[in-house]
Design a protein around this nucleic acid. Structure first.
Length: 1053
RNA sequence: GGGGUUAUAGCUCAGCUGGUUAGAGCGCAGCACUGAUAAUGCUGAGGUCCGUGGUUCGACUCCACGUAACCCCA
């Protein structure tokens, strides 16, 4: 019938077996076939960046993705089962450059863009394959051969159509942007990269005079550490809140902030003071106004207000060159200043910069300073040490440059916001975060001067003066409008080139303004465009609109919160709003970050990150999945092997042992669920109906929470259930399964059926969360005719008729009393093996009395007491004090509750006695029932007295001779059992026992209880040998010594 | 400066729609139970539930203000 089960779960090895089983049985394909044509449930996968191995943080989201997909599949839905890979972008380029040992864009150009793109594609293929293998290892089911790649033609062309729609609404434009720039690599540096490359360096800082136009004797004094930017100066900024001083130093009259005066030397003398706001608007002459490139800047030179200007560094007057700094650029934009861009990609001055033209910006500092001196505007110079950003790759000092970039005007953000509000965000504050981002963000910069990415379909007239540009919406349009280069782009028509650089760059179209030739801008696209289009590109928007409409908006997406509000979520919402003005998803579940076990961020450099493969091989995928699933997604998750061991022990060990117990005894007993006599649930004992009722509550919770997309409460309830199953249901029912004499076959069948039902249902309930271990348990428990895999079963649906809230309540009461009584034993120093005469319970509430009377055996057996007496009160054993129960009183009396409560507290002893014994009383004008109070007790002689949840319990601690003997007999049993176990005997082995002792009392106890002992330890004989010399084992029992030994006998025929 | 999240035991976290006696796990100390269990149970120590005010008969829970930490934007 059932196969023998190893005593330890061996999770990792078991998972590999299950993977082979899924493969060989084609279980996934069968699941798809089973659900074809059923109601659709649409999941949209956020693409994983195919640029490395998976980390354990990826496994969190992928656990959710898989668990929800599996749930909805088991619950009878058709799914798309498609996962995706994010392929294009600088992150891939950087790795490929590293592999090839490249240091700059020039290295790439020399290597050849076509080859370089090919290397990027190969890297994506390599890592998407690795990530697929790793995802399968995690237990993910998906249509892997049909995974989507954002570098696909379809994806890229669908983005083109999005961009064209933007352009048709006039939203695409070009503008300058200032960014940190590495002149050696010839590339812009992102903010993130910039943070990595700071170095302390010493530069020459200069104080430069900017003579005021209307007061030529006076100058603004500015200070800068980058003299090379002075030829690009446009304005000077002061803080309108600060006080500025006109200072006489030698022959000079200069303006500085009051806090800077000390820097000008000892003979500096303040002539007058004005607030910074009064300087705003004054015009000045710049130090390089004579060069042609200064152009419009000359007329624009004036003082502007900027509240970021500080008194502590420099002179409190800041030289502003919008072409050479990020802040300067933004400020210039705000003030409408002209922009002077002095240097090219390699940091070399453009034409129009006089003697500087053609020279490297990094080399000219001394010459610029010399020039200033000649012109008489150099006030002083000094060496200055500061933290300055350098290229993180090659270490070159960064410059700032204004470059042409392409943007989408986001003035239509309110349309996107409306779609944000149509979706459900979990947690709810996600909606506010997204709306906040949409409200604050600037226009979307979509261009990047790189190679591996979306070829932006923007074509500009080759005649720079013309200014015409257009956006191409797809491959066909490009073919139709191409005037040259189409053939080179297409390449082999049977195996055409992908729309990437460099091939696509060869296509030219006609300028519709000047009839000239227009070329594609060489920029590639922002990678979030790639990921944002997937609800359109992967679901056949361009090829089968009806199919698309069946799957979009997706029912569900889930990704990590940090960052995605301005990345994937933003791109999805923006693009979907532009395409069809719909939200791309109905529900979004966001989750926080994975931390290490101590709560610190994981970093490779810190050595505390954990690779996915290692975690899977060490703690098993199921344990990982459980850790993720039981966690509140809004909280950061502390992940590590210690937590894994805990979960493995507590959850998987306990579940496995329950399963092991069932199988062991079912094999021993020959129990077959299919042929064993059926026992209607109504005819089964309370404890069976209780566990079945709790099981149904768990079924209800599972379905509710999976459909609500928040499963951690369900998973925690499952933990609780597993604990109750093992440590209460099975523990309290062991003897029902072990009944070799066959005294009560119906009761035994009821127990087996119940445990079987619980295990099979629980297995299905947990299958979406932990697909491996459930598959193993199921495969052994399944019957002829059951589906081959647990994942092909229907998800359990709650059977409300089996839910018995009253029974649940009763069991809670029993467990509470049992727990409190164990505590009394502890206080009375009476170990459980020692039987006691009586447990007396005083429960004022009829409900509680009923509970205890319904389930007395659970208490007497669990606590090893001969009798349980249930009374309304403990009578003489106790005196009462009563306390108000606000929950019931508050409901009954509302505002008067405090008055009633006071009366309860002050109730005289006889009234407390009445309440304690279960009678309702009248206090003042108020009726008070026993339910309205909690009763507390005081102890009595010979009894240990305590309480649990308003129930009084008293344990008779007086030992009689009989009880002592029985206790000793139990001790003997325990020791023999331990020896059996240590000797490696099977449960069913028979033994012969010999013993000896000098203690007449002990011998008498053993003789009195010989039958009992023999039955418990499977002994065929118990023989006394006087003194017991020569017996192998010796233990001390109470005050005497017991020697004993056992011998295995031949198995009975 | 704007927005968001969090604040509960030594650590990590639960705590549903308000009920006066706030829980779990880990860790520490002691004890018990065990022929499914490398499991488990009991006991002990450990809390002004961040602060202040308000609503309420009653606030860890709801509201307002504040403090601190983290995140996003500027």
């Amino acid at each position: 019938m059932f196969k023998q089960v190893p005593s330890r779960p061996g999770l990792v090895a078991g998972e590999h077996e299950v993977l082979e089983f899924w493969e060989s049985s084609q279980a996934f394909d069968k699941l798809r076939a089973k659900n074809e044509g059923k109601p659709r449930w649409s999941f949209l996968d956020g693409p994983i960046t195919a640029n490395g191995f998976m980390g354990v943080h990826h496994a969190w989201g992928r656990t959710y993705k898989d668990a929800f997909q599996r749930y909805f599949a088991m619950a009878g839905h058709e799914l798309r089962w498609q996962q995706g890979f994010d392929c294009q972008g600088l992150w891939v380029e950087v790795q490929v450059e590293r592999d090839l040992g490249f240091k700059s864009k020039r290295d790439i150009e020399e290597y050849g863009i076509e080859e370089f793109i090919q290397r990027c594609k190969e890297r994506v293929w390599k890592y998407s394959a690795i990530q697929t293998r790793q995802s399968i290892r995690l237990g993910m089911w998906s249509d892997w051969p049909n995974s989507y790649f954002t570098m696909s033609d379809e994806n890229n062309y669908t983005i083109w159509s999005f961009l064209k729609r933007c352009h048709e609404r006039g939203l695409i434009y070009k503008d300058l942007d200032a960014m940190p720039w590495c002149p050696r690599c010839g590339t812009g540096i992102s903010e993130q990269e910039r943070k990595e490359g700071y170095k302390v360096v010493t530069d020459t800082a200069v104080y430069v005079k900017f003579p005021l136009r209307d007061w030529p004797a006076e100058s603004l004094l500015i200070w800068t550490t980058t003299p090379w930017t002075l030829p690009a100066n446009v304005a000077a900024a002061v803080n309108p809140e600060l006080t500025y001083a006109k200072v006489k130093v030698g022959n000079d009259l200069v303006w500085v902030s009051k806090g800077s005066v000390a820097k000008l030397g000892k003979d500096a003398e303040i002539v007058s003071e004005v607030p910074g706001s009064e300087l705003v608007g004054r015009q000045y002459r710049g130090p390089f106004d004579e060069i042609p490139a200064a152009g419009k800047a000359v007329e624009a030179h004036r003082v502007i207000a900027w509240d970021e200007v500080a008194d502590t560094e420099g002179t409190g007057i800041v030289h502003i060159a919008p072409g050479c700094g990020k802040e300067d650029f933004d400020l210039g934009k705000k003030e409408g200043l002209p922009i002077v861009v002095p240097i090219d990609e390699s940091g070399i001055y453009f034409d129009g910069f006089g003697p500087l033209t053609g020279r490297k910006a990094s080399d000219v500092a001394d010459d610029v300073i010399a020039g200033l001196k000649t012109k008489g505007v150099l006030f002083k110079k000094e060496r200055y040490q500061h933290d300055y950003p350098h290229c993180w790759r090659c270490g070159t000092a960064l410059l700032f440059r204004a470059v042409d970039e392409w943007y989408i005007n986001m003035g239509w953000r309110d349309e996107i916001k409306a779609n944000v509000r149509k979706a459900r965000w979990i947690p709810e504050y996600g909606e506010d975060l997204e709306l906040d981002w949409l409200g604050n963000m600037g226009d979307w910069m979509i261009s990047k001067k790189r190679y591996w990415g979306l070829a932006l379909p923007i074509f500009t007239c080759d005649d720079r003066g013309c200014g015409w540009f257009d956006v191409i919406g797809g491959r066909e349009e490009l073919r139709d409008r191409a005037i040259e280069g189409w053939e080179q782009f297409e390449g082999d028509p049977d195996n055409p080139n992908t729309p990437h650089r460099p091939h696509v760059d060869r296509v030219k179209i006609r300028c519709e303004k000047c009839d000239g030739t227009a070329s594609r801008i060489l920029d590639v696209g922002n990678p979030w465009l790639d990921a944002g289009i997937v609800p359109y590109s992967t679901v056949g928007y361009n090829t089968d609109r009806d199919h698309w409409a069946e799957w979009v908006p997706a029912d569900f997406v889930t990704e990590s919160f940090p960052g995605q509000f301005r990345n994937w979520f933003y791109a999805l919402l923006t693009m979907s709003t532009m395409m069809e003005d719909i939200p791309p998803f109905k529900t979004l579940l966001g989750y926080a970050s994975v931390r290490d076990e101590k709560g610190e961020e994981m970093h490779y450099s810190k050595g505390n990150s954990i690779e996915f493969d290692l975690a899977a091989d060490k703690m098993s995928a199921d344990v990982m999945r459980w850790i993720y699933s039981r966690h509140n997604p809004t909280q950061n998750l502390n992940f590590g092997f210690g937590i894994g061991e805990q979960v493995e022990r507590k959850v998987f060990g306990t579940l496995w042992n329950s399963y092991l117990f069932f199988v062991n005894y079912a094999i021993l007993d020959g129990f077959d669920p299919a042929s064993a006599p059926a026992v209607p649930v109504a005819d089964r004992p309370e404890i069976d109906r209780w566990i079945l009722s709790d099981l149904q509550l768990l079924v209800r919770s599972a379905n509710t929470q999976f459909r609500d997309y928040l499963i951690f409460t369900f998973v925690r309830k499952a933990e609780e259930f597993i604990d109750q199953l093992s440590n209460w249901y099975i523990r309290r029912n062991r003897q029902r399964f072990w009944d070799p004499a066959g005294t009560n076959p119906v009761d035994k069948a009821a127990a087996y059926h119940t445990l079987y039902e619980v295990l099979t249902t629980l297995t299905k309930l947990l299958a979406p969360v932990v697909p491996f271990v459930t598959e193993r348990i199921y495969s052994n428990l399944r019957l002829e005719g059951d589906p081959q895999s647990v994942h092909l079963c229907d998800y359990p649906v709650v059977d409300e008729s089996l839910i018995d809230e009253k029974l649940s309540y009763q069991m809670r009461v029993v467990q509470q009393v049992a727990s409190a009584a164990r505590s009394l034993r502890e206080q009375a120093a009476q170990r459980v093996r020692q039987p006691l005469a009586e447990l007396r319970v005083g429960a004022a509430s009829p409900r509680d009395r009923e509970a205890l009377e319904a389930l007395p055996a659970l208490i007497t057996e669990e606590l090893n007491v001969k009798a349980l007496t249930v009374l309304p009160s403990l009578g003489d054993l106790t005196s009462y004090t009563v306390k108000p129960n606000f929950r019931t009183l508050g409901a009954k009396y509302g505002k008067q509750v405090q008055a009633v409560a006071a009366l309860v507290r002050e109730a005289p002893p006889e009234v407390a006695q009445q309440l304690g014994e279960g009678a309702a009383v009248k206090l003042g004008d108020y009726e008070v029932t026993p339910e309205d109070v909690s009763v507390h007790t005081v102890t009595a002689e010979g009894w240990a007295v305590g309480s649990a949840g308003g129930i009084q319990i008293a344990l008779d601690t007086r030992l009689t001779d009989e009880l002592r003997k029985e206790g000793l007999a139990r001790d003997v049993v325990r020791h023999i059992q331990q020896l059996r176990k240590d000797s490696g005997l099977e449960i069913s082995d028979r033994i012969e026992v010999t013993y000896g002792t000098d203690d007449a009392g002990l011998q008498e106890a053993i003789e009195t209880w010989a039958d009992f002992i023999a039955g418990e330890v499977q002994a065929q004989s118990i023989t006394h040998i006087a003194g017991g010399n020569g017996l192998s084992h010796q233990v001390s029992l109470s005050d005497s010594i017991l020697r004993f030994g056992i011998e295995k006998t031949a198995r009975p025929g």
